[in-house]
Structure formats: structure tokens, C-alpha cells
Design a protein around this nucleic acid. Structure first.
Length: 447
RNA sequence: GGCGGCGUGGCCGAGUGGUUAGGCAGAGGCCUGCAAAGCCUCGCACAGCGGUUCGAAUCCGCUCGCCGCCUCCA
């Protein structure tokens, strides 16, 4: 049960050992220099899905996700806006959590900030210098990749080719062009921290090593992030753990990127949509469904057409559950188990949703043929599937006033007083409700 | 230039040697005071060209096209 594709091995592995009850994961979080976009949302959804799935399977999950609150882009933004870097970081950290809360993402067990781990990072860098793996040059401290066994081993690239293809500006003082900064020295007037080498800032890759090992310990179960972090970020984290002589994560997992118009969603291309905007326009549940349509490693097309499609698809599911009055059962049904089994296979959400939609169709047929018990069973199962992946069922609490209006309209309809019935319906519309007459009676939803 | 991956019906998106993926859109039907929904049925697709095979979307080769990484990026 439960295999996942391990980036480092290039094949699927068993994620949970026999009898394992606790699972530790570290997922690279955001650099808080801007509001999160749909790409960040996918990262959050994918690892939230993994977490929920494992928890449903009876495994306790400890999840750490960092907040990178020291970075050049944050400083640039601060400079432009007249705020301090800390203010900028706190503002977008709040935006991050607020958007993810709205999406229904479970909060990580811990969300450490890079700036709160500076002393641990410095300690690690000292150790790396002492062991001869890192060296000091005029502008900072660098890790010598020649000291890293097997480098690069996560991205499985050829070292020579990496060198040949390197577009990095080569610093003469560096021993190898592939060496990367652990500590960058900056002027005293700049945002920074005191260190044995002078005023400066930590390199990007070091924080994750310090925080993952510091909070989860050596040999933690999983390290995750977006596909674009494989190289150099994760490669260079592993390199540091390696020269420190620490066992790093057991497995690596990376989610595919979000595309818009067939191209990677990125700020530099300008084809982004902010998570908040998507939440405002479509709501959390359709958005979640949109994310789960594709397997997590595949690129995922996002944009208005697919979001609208997800809206309609979810409506169909909701309508069925409502018609058959389904509710998530306390104990998973065999149908739910079928859905969950698909998720065991490297989080195969497309297959899982095929199971779900087949249940919807079968349930609708059961309703039409009067097999209400079977319909109810299927509706409960579908509700359970939605619950399993954190979409949940639609809950609309109606005020007494609304209920009364619906009742009055039904009475008017029965008396063939359609003028009154239509008037009430449009009144409900003004109140923000959409009333639809169905074979099973009136149905109210948010307009 | 190197490395990795991909090209599936109008769109999204699974599959990976022989049985229906699934969704959205579209067509037909049912239901219906109106409206808007809802329900049912319907697709025989797999970049091109060769090859292997009794049989290929699925394996091999070539061609074309696309994307990602190699630089900050989820």
C-alpha cells in the first residue's frame, strides 16, 4: 500500500514501512515576497492531499514547511515600497496563510521562519568550513561541490554537462563554477545578520537543511517541493547534509508545475493568476477539484476554461449528493476504499475521480429507477470521497426567512398562483439565492 | 549546447500489448407552469513514417512539434 515516485531513484517506492505509525515530511514553503499564485496553490494541495491520505490510513503525519523571509526579492520590494524587509515578509506571510486557509489546506505542524534559524545555519557553515568542505572568499562562504560524494545525484545530471551548460556567472575565486554560496557578505547598511565572517545573509539552500534536520531529525521520511526546486535547491540541500555527515530525507517527491496556455505559470512570463483571485471567483471547492484533475507529477493546465469546467463538474456531484441526501459515513464504504486505493498508487487522483464520477452516474440511475437504498449508499460514498481529499460536501445553512419563502412559494405553486411563485423566486434571487425546481422538489443554492 | 519529459477525440486529462478511463463542451431523448437546472444515451481518439508482434495508443528506430531544468521560481 501506498507507493510514491521518488525523484532521486526515478521509480516508485513504498512510502510507509511495515508497522510505521508516524511519518515526517518537510515541504519547501514560499519566499514571502509576493502574494501566492495558482502554482503555490498546487504545491499546497498536493502535499495536503498526501497528508490527509496518510492520516486517513492511520499514520500520524508531522509536517514542517518553512517560510523564507530573507531573500533579495523581499529586500528589493521593501526598498521600492519604503517598508522594512521584515514588514514585507510578515505581510506576505499573512497573505500566504490566509489564502491557504481559504483553500482548506491544513496548517503545517510547524512553519519555521528562516530568520529564526540564523544561528543554527551559522553553526552548520562553521562545521562545513572546519571539515574543509566549505571555504571563504572575498564575498562570502561557499560549499565546494568537489567534496560532495556523487554530486549531482538528485537531479541525475552529468556533472561535466552541468558545467558546460552552466549559465551562472563564474566568480574567479570559486574553486568550481558549481560551488554555491552558504553565506553572502553585505554592506553594514544592508539588511543582514552578524556572523563569524562579517555582516551578511545566509544562502538560500542552507535554511532548509537546518530546519528540516533541526525539527524532524536525521533520516526524516520525505522532502517535497515543486519540480523546479530539484536543481539547484534540493540538490544543494542534499549536498550540505552530505558533507555534514547527516542522513537526509529517505525520499524525495516533487509536484509538477501549473501551466497557463501551455506554458509554465511564472511571474517573469506574466501568465499568473493569484490564488486569492481564483478563490474569489470560483471558491475553494471547485479550485481544489481543478487541482486534483491531473496526477500531481503531470503539468497542469489552469485558467478560466478549466476552472469553469471544474465548477460545473462539482455542481453535478453536489446535485447528486443533495438529491440522494448523502452524507459522509463514519466507516469508509467499499466504494470509498476503491477511491482510496487509487490514491495509494502515487496519488492517482484521475483514477480516483473516475471512480467517483462512475458512482455518481450509477447513483443517478438508481434514483431514477427508485432504488433509493442503493442511491443513498452511493451518495454516502461520494460524500466520503470528497471528504477524503478535503473537498467536503456543500453545506448551506438556510435562515428561517428563506425557508419560509420557499414554503410560501411551494404553496403558491400548488395553488397555480405562478405570479406569486415567480415573485418569490426573484426575491430570493435578490437575496443571493438561486432556486431551482427539480423532480425532487425545490433546490436552493448560492447564486 | 547538455539533461529530463511530453505529443491521446472540440478542450482538460488517465491508460501503457488484446476488454468503456473520467470530466467539460456538443448532439438526441426524458422531465418540466415558466425559468434554470437535473437525469439518461451517444465519442471508437491516441503527432508522422517505418519496424517488432497473431495483435500496438501502449515496445523499437527515425522525423516533426512542444515543454521543463541547467539562473530567482512551488
Amino acid at each position: 500500500m501506498n507507493v510514491v515516485y521518488d525523484t532521486a531513484l526515478g521509480e516508485q517506492v513504498q512510502l510507509i514501512g511495515p508497522g510505521q505509525r508516524r511519518f515526517t515530511m518537510y515541504v519547501c514553503g514560499p519566499t514571502v515576497d509576493n502574494s501566492p499564485h495558482l502554482g503555490h496553490g498546487r504545491l499546497a494541495i498536493v502535499f495536503d492531499l498526501l497528508r490527509r491520505h496518510l492520516e486517513r490510513r492511520g499514520v500520524e503525519v508531522v509536517m514542517v514547511q518553512n517560510i523564507t523571509d530573507v531573500d533579495d526579492k523581499i529586500i528589493d520590494r521593501a526598498r521600492r515600497s519604503g517598508m522594512s524587509p521584515v514588514e514585507v515578509a510578515r505581510e506576505f506571510e499573512a497573505a500566504w496563510f490566509s489564502a491557504l486557509d481559504r483553500l482548506g489546506i491544513l496548517r503545517p505542524t510547524k512553519s519555521p521562519r528562516a530568520t529564526e534559524w540564523i544561528s543554527q545555519m551559522i553553526g552548520m557553515i562553521v562545521e562545513m568550513i572546519d571539515s574543509g568542505s566549505a571555504y571563504r572568499i572575498s564575498d562570502g562562504v561557499y560549499l565546494s561541490v568537489d567534496r560532495v560524494e556523487g554530486y549531482p545525484r538528485l537531479s541525475r545530471q552529468d556533472r561535466e554537462e552541468l558545467l558546460a551548460g552552466a549559465r551562472v556567472e563564474v566568480l574567479e575565486e570559486k574553486r568550481s563554477p558549481l560551488d554555491f554560496a552558504l553565506w553572502k557578505l553585505v554592506g553594514a547598511e544592508e539588511y543582514g545578520f552578524e556572523s563569524p565572517w562579517g555582516w551578511g545573509r545566509p544562502g538560500w539552500h542552507t535554511e532548509c537543511v537546518a530546519m528540516s534536520l533541526g525539527l524532524l531529525g536525521e533520516g526524516f521520511d520525505l522532502h517535497g517541493g515543486g519540480m523546479d526546486l530539484v536543481f539547484p535547491h534540493h540538490e544543494n540541500e542534499w549536498a550540505q547534509a552530505s558533507v555534514l555527515g547527516k542522513r537526509f530525507c529517505r525520499h524525495w517527491m516533487h509536484n509538477g508545475l501549473v501551466e497557463m496556455g501551455g506554458e509554465k505559470m511564472s511571474k517573469s512570463i506574466g501568465n499568473t493568476m493569484s490564488l486569492t483571485e481564483a478563490l474569489d471567483r470560483y471558491g475553494a471547492r471547485p479550485l481544489r477539484l481543478a487541482y486534483l484533475r491531473a496526477q500531481y507529477r503531470s503539468p497542469l493546465e489552469m485558467g478560466e476554461p478549466v476552472l469553469e469546467e471544474s465548477e460545473r463538474a462539482l455542481e453535478r456531484i453536489d446535485d447528486f449528493i443533495r438529491r440522494a441526501q448523502g452524507a459522509e459515513p463514519a466507516v469508509p464504504t467499499p466504494k470509498i476504499e476503491e477511491f482510496a486505493t487509487a490514491l495509494d498508487d502515487d496519488l492517482d487522483t484521475p483514477r480516483a475521480f473516475a471512480v467517483l464520477f462512475e458512482a455518481v452516474r450509477a447513483g443517478n440511475i438508481a434514483l431514477d429507477t427508485g432504488e433509493s437504498e442503493r442511491a443513498r449508499y452511493l451518495a454516502d460514498s461520494v460524500a466520503g470521497m470528497l471528504g477524503w481529499v478535503g473537498i467536503g460536501t456543500e453545506r448551506l445553512v438556510l435562515s428561517d426567512e428563506v425557508k419560509d419563502l420557499v414554503t410560501r412559494r411551494e404553496r403558491a405553486k400548488a395553488e397555480r398562483d405562478y405570479a406569486t411563485a415567480d415573485q418569490i423566486r426573484s426575491h430570493l434571487g435578490e437575496m443571493g439565492y438561486l432556486l431551482k425546481d427539480t423532480r425532487d422538489g425545490p433546490v436552493i443554492s448560492r447564486a
